[in-house]
Amino acid sequence: MSEANNKVVLSVKDLEVTFRKGRQRVSAVAGISFDLYEGETLGLVGESGCGKSTTGRALMQIVPSTGGQIFVDGDELTSLNKDEARNLRRKMQMIFQDPISSLNPRRRVKDIVAEPLDCWKLAKGAERDSIVSDLLNKVGIDPAVYGNRYARQFSGGQCQRISIARSLAMRPRLLICDEVVSALDVSIQAQILNLLEDLKKEYGLTMLFIAHDLAVVKNISDRVAVMYLGKLCEIGPSDTLYAKPAHPYTEFLLGAALEADPELEQSSATLGGEPPSPLNPPSGCRFRTRCPFATEKCAAEEPQLRDIGEGHQVACHFPLVGAHQ
């Protein structure tokens, strides 16, 4: 844990998001809690449908949360009225997965980056221009040459750079990155990851990095949280969690990650089956239907996140030994 200190920037308590699907209720996020400390990057991994993106969107109030609390620097977001919430959200910014679609193709790059400044009427004229130029320089796009181009003229990697510049215009405390590199080629992905690391240092950002790619998440995160079917399975410092996973799901996930090295022996244990439908989640531990170690206790009783040392928490009745303890 490099620059993280003990000041909590974001605190999530029992966050729930439930969608209505016809008459049924889909609980996409089923009560998750975590803290984000100043200057750290928390990676949120899981497979599609586990609720990781919904979590990010609920934090930004793009989708309404149906339960729980979100504290940003101590202020509770969900209890505020519309204007107060809008104000508080200035401290948070989000970057999206699809770089092309997150920029309006018919607007100029300069105006896109200046959008937050214009919304909040923070800067005008020369001051606005200089802020925009500075931001574009920071993300590696020459404002003099490309500032007046339309967003549609840029490639995916460049669009993601522009999105990053836009998200930094408000000098946010917290940056939520939702699968920001998954649409990019490997070489471009590396550029963006390095850029995010540099900007995080420079702007003193706290980041929530949501992704499905385990290697990417490990690379950028100080701590990692693993989600399965709307619940947190495990949360801990990246290197510890990857080296000694305590939750069986985490271990299967890591085993399925393919390393770009033909001489590395790959884990032969693959996880069978597919995640159950969130419409009808299993009782007790949600992973028990695919877990080779599940017992009756797992069906009867829902495991709660508990500390197993070194800031490592796991929600499993029978955590893998070898991790700690």
Binding site: M60, I62, R86, R89, Q93, S102, N104, S163, R166, M170
Partner: peptide, 9 residues
């Protein structure tokens, strides 16, 4: 981009 604009306030 519409979501992005909302997020910007």
């Amino acid at each position: 981009y519409v979501t992005a604009a909302r997020v910007q306030g």
